[in-house]
Each structure stands twice: as C-alpha cells, then as structure tokens.
C-alpha cells in the first residue's frame, strides 16, 4: 500500500497493492523480523506465565487465608499499580544492570513479573468460589497447596485465560523497557522493529502498516483461540454455587 492509497479513504479498507506483498518484503529486508518475533514471543509467554504464577499464589493467600497484616499487604500490592512507571525506569535500569541481567530475556521480563491488577482480579474470582468445596477438601485431608492446585486452579480456568490474554497483549506491546535493557539487534522485540521502519521525518506508511499487521497477528490469533476457551470455560466449567 502506498502513502497515497492510505490517505485515500476508498482504498483504506482494501488496499490494492497489499496483494503484491512488496511492503512485507521490505519489512523483512529491513529488519530481522523472525528473530524479533521469537524474542517478543518469549518475553510475552514467559512473562505471562510468571505473572500467572505470582498472581494466583498471592490471590490464593488473600482469598482463603486469614493472617496478620492481610489488609496491609493487599493494599501494598494494589499500591504498586498506582506508582507511575516513568519515575521508576532509571532506577530499575540500575538494578537490572547491577544484577547482571542486561541484554538478557530475564532482564526484560523481571520487572513485569507481577501485575497487581491480576492479583486483584483473581482474588475477586477466588472469593466467589463456594466455601463448601474448601471444607470438603479439608475433611478429605487435602493440604492447602494441593487444594490450590487441584481445585482452585481448575475452577479458575476462564479467568486465567482472560489474564493470559490480557497479559500477553500487554507484554507483546512493550517498547521502551526492552529497548533500554538490550544492546544488540538480536535481542530486540518486534515493537522496536516497527519503530525502526520509520523515521521522524520520512514517511513510509506501507512497510509500517505491514509490520504492524505482522505484529498484530499473534495477538489476534491468541485472542481468537482463547476467546473460545473463555466462553467454553464459562458455560461448561462454571461451578454453580
């Protein structure tokens, strides 16, 4: 698609020259899209799995246990959502650099391993799970952690899919942080690749849009698959209390 076509609304919907794939070829010629794609995939998947682990565990503690300082620690975690990220960037760069994680996937992912939003979301869900289940498990002599793995997690299926989807999209689109903590073209994420295709003073809408489409593809695919699961999980797996 050429810039003229993009500014012309009639071709906006179905650009003609999209069919000749020239923009896509240009994208692949200018950047190592495959590598960037894999990098983003690793960051998004590993980061999301990490987030799911940290938030299900924390939510379990908040929903099923009574302990000293529960309110405080919950507010403490919730508070982390309210700290503006931009004031943390330089400090976190220093920390990651001291930990020797510069230029590694871990360096990119580690700051994203907890998102209090998901702890909150899972807590809300777990609090609405029927208490009887828990009593029953206790009578069966089931340990708390086993109860968590065998009952709470399976019953959180659809919520976990929502968390996965929302977290995947979020991490797939991070831009500034991976740029800061990596120094080689091989470690860059796909969003950096898109930025690389454009310059502040020159326009080449075609390749940018092609790259945007490539970047959008996985989130749309994952979305379509998981959306099915969310609906399925809701109708079939839901426990009517």
């Amino acid at each position: 698609m050429t810039t003229q076509e993009i500014t012309d609304i009639n071709t906006f919907i179905l650009p003609k020259s999209f069919r000749n794939w020239s923009n896509f070829k240009e994208v692949f010629a200018m950047t190592d899209m495959n590598r960037l794609f894999i990098n983003s995939m690793i960051v998004a998947v590993v980061g999301t799995v990490g987030r799911i682990i940290t938030s299900t565990l924390a939510a379990f503690a908040f929903a099923f246990f009574d302990f000293k300082g529960k309110k405080f620690w919950f507010s403490f975690l919730m508070g982390s959502m309210m700290v503006p990220g931009d004031v943390l960037i330089f400090s976190n760069y220093v920390t990651v650099s001291r930990l020797g994680m510069m230029g590694s996937y871990l360096g990119i992912i580690i700051v994203y391993l907890v998102f209090a939003n998901y702890i909150f979301m899972l807590r809300q869900h777990m609090m609405s799970l029927p208490r009887e289940l828990f009593e029953a498990a206790k009578i069966d002599g089931c340990s708390n952690f086993r109860f968590f793995l065998t009952t709470v997690i399976p019953l959180s299926g659809s919520i976990l899919v929502s968390v996965f989807l929302s977290s995947f999209v979020g991490l797939w689109n991070i831009y500034l942080w991976p740029l800061l903590v990596t120094n080689t073209n091989e470690m860059r994420t796909i969003q950096v690749g898109i930025s690389m295709l454009s310059s502040a003073e020159q326009l080449s809408w075609g390749p940018i849009m092609a790259a945007t489409l490539i970047a959008l593809l996985p989130t749309v695919i994952i979305f379509t698959i998981s959306q099915k699961f969310i609906v399925k999980g809701l109708t079939a797996g839901a426990v009517k209390g």
Partner: peptide, 15 residues
C-alpha cells in the same frame, strides 16, 4: 522457558 532464559542470557553476556 527457563532453559531459554538461562541459555540465551549466557550466550549473550559472552558476546
């Protein structure tokens, strides 16, 4: 993913 993480960070710090 853990394998990937450690593997890549290893080769990268060397490079």
């Amino acid at each position: 993913s853990l394998l990937l993480l450690t593997g890549h960070s290893g080769t990268l710090s060397a490079a």
